[in-house]
Amino acid sequence: MRFQLTEDQRALRDGVRGLLVRRFDRDALWAAVAEPGLDRALWRELGAAGFFALRVPEAEGGVGLGLPEAVLAFEEAGRALLPGPLLATHLAAGTVAGAATGETVVAAVDGGLVEWLAEADVVRGDAAGAVPLRSVDPLTPLHRAPGAAGVADPVAVLLTAAEQLGTATRACELAVQHARTREQFGQPIGGFQAVKHLCAELLARVEVARAAVYAAAVTGDRADIAAARLLSDEAAVRGARDCLQVHGGMGFTWESEVHLLLKRAWVRAQRGGGVTQSEELLAADLVA
């Protein structure tokens, strides 16, 4: 048993991280907030880097890697808060022409919502009668789609969990950075146990979620995936909330990055049948 990243997996993760640092830094993030819309050039670059074709077999022109590698890539996307219908496009690669290369932008109906409908070239699922809503997340335009939510695709649930994990990691980093540098009562606030313990809980949630997400990527087991989902949702949503608390009044401002983490985490928590479906699946697993 070697349940650690391999050399290749570490290189892949560093590669994706490097690409996103170069192409989607903090300035780009705020530019995207100021001017919503999909950056098609960046989309094609992601396609060229293999982000969408990662799991498409080599024989079909893909990269030929598996779920663990996809999880690492999506974790990095979540860490950078990369906007766009990444999941729908990734899942369409190999099926929808042009999705793999990033030429075609794909959106999908999930849980009564469609992310990025207006920017999409292809929509999967029944989006008839979808109406736009004023999205809580400035980086995710949303449509409300009538019609019942089906049973979630486990791969979609897992990759969403990976994005949540990345966002949770970012929330922990931001909280710790702030706690180290912000001074009150003549010392960094991270020296106070009340603040310190919030940060420790942030990390604990991230590490438990990480083990669950990576293991689910290896086994592909439905119960493992549901567990990964619950823990990474909690790590991201609860983590962003605690990160906001550590930032104090600044955390409540628009110019702080923290609310962007929380709002994206809220959007993702709606995917894949919501939390209830995963909890019921894990309950049923106990009596299986």
Binding site: A227, L231, L286
Partner: peptide, 12 residues
């Protein structure tokens, strides 16, 4: 749902 969450926790 509570037991489901505990299943997630102990699996993790």
């Amino acid at each position: 749902r509570w037991l489901g969450r505990l299943n997630a926790e102990f699996r993790a």
